[in-house]
């Protein structure tokens, strides 16, 4: 393969919510292409009969009883927030004016 195209990279960066500089786009383009070429090797050895492994251990049905426990206080919850108002987290406007 191949470098990732700039458009592909930009789309990935948008999905991942990371602004990339021009320089980063250039470097990552070749590095990611190389890495993806290399990891594509996994496709060589697999077939449909192999069950994918999502968890390290074959355990199932681990549940918690429905019993109320300790919550944080409002001040603990908000202590690290960059911005707050009225006991809530204050976040920048979500959408532009239509």
């Amino acid at each position: 393969m191949s470098n990732l195209s700039r458009a592909e990279l930009e789309n990935l960066a948008k999905l991942a919510r990371i602004n990339l500089t021009d320089e980063e786009l250039t470097i990552f383009g070749s590095q990611l292409g190389l890495i993806l070429d290399s990891v594509a090797k996994v496709q060589e050895v697999v077939n449909d009969s192999i069950v994918p492994m999502s968890h390290a251990l074959p355990m199932t049905n681990v549940f918690r009883p429905d019993v109320v426990g300790q919550s944080l206080s409002n001040s603990e919850a908000l202590a690290a927030a960059p911005s707050t108002q009225d006991h809530r987290f204050k976040v920048p406007r979500i959408l532009d004016e239509e």
């Binding site: 429905d66 109320v68 426990g69 919550s71 944080l72 206080s73 409002n74 919850a77």
Partner: peptide, 27 residues
């Protein structure tokens, strides 16, 4: 209408003061 949230032990009560039915998990 479980007593606690689906992934943590915070209460599900409606109408509590904001950000008081919260814990490290649901935050």
């Amino acid at each position: 209408n479980t007593a606690t949230k689906v992934f943590c032990a915070c209460p599900t009560s409606f109408g509590s003061e904001p950000n008081t039915n919260v814990c490290p998990v649901c935050l």
